[in-house]
Design a protein around this nucleic acid. Structure first.
Lengths: 106, 106
DNA sequence: AAATTGTGAAGCCGTTCGGCTTCACATATA
DNA sequence: TATATGTGAAGCCGAACGGCTTCACAATTT
């Protein structure tokens, strides 16, 4: 089964859960109250998010609080870095071109 | 049909296509040569990426070059911003707590 | 005009996904 | 002990996905 962060955040419900939990760790029931979805379905999402290490469960008596692992979110940022670098290179090449044109002009 | 950037980048092949095209605009055939996948399947991915405005086709004679629209990638970055802000707030609150503890110590 | 090449669209098939319902188990409360 | 509550797991179903094959069309080349 495909299980990576990108597949995990592909679902809008899961993205909403992440935002919710980012503010404050919550139990499955508390999370479900914010959606028009049954608790069991939320649990499925929580399992996927946990398997991807985006969430980590913390037992407290008979309740389980799900907490965001912000470090894992950085992996997305790291992936975006590729494009920042590539674009940076492009602009640099463009600058070179412009520089060459400018210096050829006189 | 679900069609947003997050669903688009959920597929590893599509992520690879984006990286490839980021460096240099390419035709479907040229892209397909980098994968062990039929050209037609690549075309499907290109259609999805185009529908999400991550790529834009540029006709040149009978060839079509697909180009990255870097601006669209920024939407992912914008989404990540939520978490940066939330985390910032958390640290600020933590700082407040530490500051209070420190000042109560006299 | 005829043949070749680049591309997209349609349809098929097996797999995955997202929701639901039902059941099982562990913890807390009476 | 008996009951209520919080949670996860399994199974079902319809929809979507990712790959494939085949076909159709437009632009180029001969």
């Amino acid at each position: 089964m495909r299980r990576d962060i990108f597949q995990a955040i592909a679902d809008p419900t899961r993205r909403a859960i992440l935002v919710l939990v980012a503010v404050q760790a919550m139990t499955p029931n508390a999370i479900a109250e914010h959606f028009d979805i049954k608790r069991q379905s939320i649990s499925k999402h929580l399992r996927i998010l946990s398997e991807c290490d985006l969430l980590v469960p913390r037992q407290e008596g008979r309740e389980i609080f799900y907490e965001l692992k912000i470090d894992k979110m950085k992996e997305i940022d790291t992936w975006l870095d590729q494009f920042r670098k590539i674009m940076e290179e492009s602009f640099k090449r463009l600058d070179d071109v412009l520089y060459t044109i400018k210096n050829k002009k006189p």
